[in-house]
Design a protein around this nucleic acid. Sequence first.
DNA 1: GGATAACTGGAATTCGCGTTCCAGATGAGT
DNA 2: ACTCATCTGGAACGCGAATTCCAGTTATCC
Lengths: 183, 183
Amino acid sequence: MSSGLRADAVRNRQLALEAATQLLRESGATLTVETIAKRAGLGAGTVVRAFGGKDALLDAAVSGLLQPVVDRAHELLETTAPEQALRTFLAELIAFQSANAGVNDRLGGLNLLATNALRAELVRSVEEMVARARRDGAIRTDLDPAVVTILIGESAFAIAKASPGSGDLPAAFITVLMDGLRP
Amino acid sequence: MSSGLRADAVRNRQLALEAATQLLRESGATLTVETIAKRAGLGAGTVVRAFGGKDALLDAAVSGLLQPVVDRAHELLETTAPEQALRTFLAELIAFQSANAGVNDRLGGLNLLATNALRAELVRSVEEMVARARRDGAIRTDLDPAVVTILIGESAFAIAKASPGSGDLPAAFITVLMDGLRP
DNA sequence: GGATAACTGGAATTCGCGTTCCAGATGAGT
DNA sequence: ACTCATCTGGAACGCGAATTCCAGTTATCC
């Protein structure tokens, strides 16, 4: 096969990835190579080797989680009117981040190449939504679109982190934000 | 004196605190006991003993940074009209967080007793500002005040973290937020 | 079904850090 | 000035965690 890996190595790679993803999403879990290995039913060495290091493994896991969100943004850009796309995407993004609360807190000091690329792509998509909504007259023109994009992205992120504690928060946020962004 | 500490111990306590505060504010700096000790011109043992542990030392350092902000919130509550107080405080809070960027990222896993107390006090102050502004008719009443407070706090925090890269961001944020919060 | 290269488990290694320890230094009381 | 309790520097220690290593196992190819 194209990979050049032995069949068992391929299987174990997959097991390691799944175990890492699981543990990443379990808020309190300790995220050591040891625990990932135990969860996957593998030895520590195998887990590390599968991706070339712990960082790369987690990068793959986080990317896997993020990819559907990126796809969804593209889909909304193609199928939905800009303002509505922005609203919908924000709601879904917050729900996603909220469901994966704690993931981001445990990535400090890690070098996440693929993940950062996806994040950049996400920002690009939001930028495009903002630009289009603004062309439609749905967003005020006294602010730099790039600044508006950052504003949206960063605060959505923060709201998601805080929202497990308070269910109304995301809806309130979107209301306030979209009202504040109107011309 | 009341402390019961020897004079040199008092002085070294102060040196350790200042060194810790400095390093905390220097974004890239490694924040180990060793580096703090070197900066203070002390031995590692002395630094640790001064406050009873690294956590307590950093707690004291962060509290020291935060205290003026808390005082300022109280002052604004006493001297300024609610809506204006909120605007002003937000701008100052963001400027402060921005100037101390990176401090918050390095506090993961630490037990910061005094700091958390100050943070809670900060939230209480903002809550009071929101409540008063709402009574004045300056803030929409279709949202739970507690939710509005969290909304403000969390997003201000996020904006501050992102703002070193983009100077217009804080002003844009406050504009959008306050417009969105109007009745 | 052998031969061989690839892969595996998990023990040993390494590394970064906070804390502890203690022989020597130093401030405080007289 | 003398004494002694307190404090100091920094080496040694303990601990958690990633990585490396290697003897043994297993897939793959003929």
